[in-house]
Structure formats: structure tokens, C-alpha cells
Write a protein that binds this DNA or RNA. Structure first.
Length: 273
DNA sequence: CTGGCTCCCTGAATGC
DNA sequence: TGCATTCAGGGAGCCA
């Protein structure tokens, strides 16, 4: 499932192939993919728009157009790829944007999404979609002090809080498990009992895990393969029964906040004082 | 404010 | 072999 590093990887991959191109046509192949406006309006409004740039906010991919922002959330199984020349739609393609380069060459930006959870917004007010997101974990606002203070303000289980996009934006199930293991914190630990030292460790863990994810071009798991390699470096995620890389204890899988969660039962203990 | 549950979907895994 | 059932998972929405 694409999280921050995977979306960042996709943004970097497609940017050189789409920037400067003009969207000459849009084919909506699954209407519910378009969150706003309606599928019909979408095609009309996006047609003729030039792509100015590609960026990312949390798990949203942002195509900056002349008059709009095209926001794409890949959710579980979404993927974006550029296909050169004239193409036919492939299985699970939900949206196809025909692109025309300055020299007339044609290509397509395809949004492929097996499970149909992904969504696309075309809007001139991106903050209506992105406005409630928490800070970027790799951004300047996310400091150890900020994390400590905001963990203490709440009384939440650590993992659900890390997954809460209004608290911190971009961390998903994989990187939450990896971060908590690296910081030696239990996913069920309460946010308001975290010490300053633990908050600093968690801050460092989140950043380093996300940075390594980006360095490895993200993780390629399930049937979505993007060439990323981070899945080969998981500490705990999807490693039930395998040894903890720190102490060798068998990794356990449990459910936290209705999410599959992986921990080392020896390294990650809820502290009581 | 918090946590639990359901829904949206498909394909892989499992059961008989 | 084949059919039916179960399940994962991001995020919104609902409820207690």
C-alpha cells in the first residue's frame, strides 16, 4: 500500500515525463474514482490544462495544472504510470489522461487501481482536501519538541495516533510498525505517558524509516510492484514468526485499531511506572 | 476526546 | 477441480 515513501517515489518517477505536457483528453473508466467534481465535469475541466509540476503532500500526489490542482490518493492498491505512444486501457485502469508534448508526441498517465479505493480531486481549492492534514514528517514543522508536546496533549494509543493523518501526515501501517519497533515503543502504549527521550527516539525513528523507504524507492508488496526494494529491509512488518533483527525474538502479529500490527515482544514493552 | 465497528473493493488464501 | 467463504487494508462516517 502506498505510503509517503511510495508516493514520493511515484512523484519523482513520473515528474520528468509529465511536466510541461498538456492533458488533451480524459477517460474516466470508473466514475467513483473522481471524488470531485462529477466525472462528467472532470473530463471537461481537465482537458487542455498544462501540467506545471508534480509534488506530494502526505500520501497525496499533486499535479499542479494551470487553473487547478489534480490531487490523487492511491489508497490501498492505486498506482500511476506513464505509458508512451498510443495505448489501450489495461485491466483495472480507472482513469486515463492523454498527454501531448510540445513536439506532438503522445503518452498517457494511467491511474490503475485494483480495489477501487483510490480517489482523484480536481479543484482550485486544494486546501479543502488537504487542509486538515498534520505536519509532514520530513518537514521543518515536525520537530522532536513538537512530537513530545503533541503526544502529551492527547491520550491515544501510539499506533492509531501515528496513523491519524490529522496528527501526522503520510505514515501508514508499514512505516508505523517499523518506526515503533525502531523506537522500542509498544503500539498500544499511551501517547501521554511517553517521555521526552522516547519522543525524541520516535521522532528519529519515523524520519529515518521514511528516509530509508524513499532511498529504497519504497516497498513493493502485495501485487503492486514498482521496483522498490524496502520490503527486503523490514524490521517487523509482515515478518510474523521471524527473528527480531535486534534481539532475535520471534516477531508477533496482533491487531491494534483494526490493523494488523507487528512487534518484537521483547524490544517493545509497555512501560509502567 | 477516544476507540470500536462498518463500509468501500478485489484477489489471494482457505475450507469443503 | 471448483465453488463458497474469509480476509487485508486507508480513510470516512457512525456510534457508544
Amino acid at each position: 500500500m502506498p505510503e509517503l515513501p511510495e508516493v514520493e517515489t511515484i512523484a519523482r518517477t513520473i515528474a520528468p515525463h509529465v511536466t510541461g505536457r498538456i492533458i488533451s483528453a480524459a477517460e474516466v473508466r470508473w466514475a467513483r474514482t473522481i471524488a470531485s467534481p462529477t466525472a462528467r465535469k472532470f473530463a471537461g475541466q481537465v482537458k487542455g490544462q498544462r501540467i506545471i509540476g508534480v509534488s506530494r503532500r502526505a500520501k497525496y500526489l499533486i499535479l499542479q495544472l494551470e487553473d487547478y490542482n489534480l490531487l490523487i490518493h492511491l489508497r490501498m492498491s492505486g498506482d500511476l504510470m506513464v505509458r508512451m505512444g498510443k495505448i489501450k486501457a489495461e485491466k483495472h485502469d480507472r482513469l486515463l489522461l492523454a498527454l501531448r508534448a510540445e513536439d506532438g508526441r503522445q503518452s498517457h498517465l494511467a491511474f490503475n487501481d485494483t480495489r477501487k479505493f483510490g480517489r482523484v480531486w480536481l479543484t482550485d481549492q486544494p486546501e479543502t482536501v488537504l487542509g486538515s492534514l498534520g505536519p509532514e514528517p520530513l518537514g521543518r514543522d515536525f520537530t522532536p519538541q513538537w512530537l513530545y508536546e503533541n503526544l502529551r496533549k492527547r491520550r491515544r494509543q501510539l499506533k492509531p495516533l501515528l496513523l491519524d493523518q490529522t496528527f501526522l501526515a503520510g505514515v501508514g501501517n508499514i512505516y508505523a510498525d517499523e518506526s515503533l519497533h525502531k523506537a522500542k515503543l509498544h503500539p498500544l502504549g499511551l501517547s501521554n505517558s511517553v517521555t521526552k527521550k522516547q519522543a525524541e527516539a520516535l521522532h528519529e525513528a519515523i524520519r529515518s524509516v521514511l528516509r530509508e523507504g524513499i532511498r529504497r524507492n519504497g516497498a513493493s508488496i502485495d501485487w503492486v510492484y514498482r521496483g522498490g526494494e524496502y520490503q527486503n529491509y523490514f524490521r517487523v512488518y509482515d515478518r510474523e514468526g521471524k527473528p527480531c533483527p535486534v534481539c532475535g525474538t520471534g516477531i508477533q502479529k496482533l491487531t491494534v485499531g483494526q490493523r494488523g500490527t507487528h512487534i518484537c515482544p521483547k524490544c517493545q514493552v509497555i512501560e509502567r511506572k
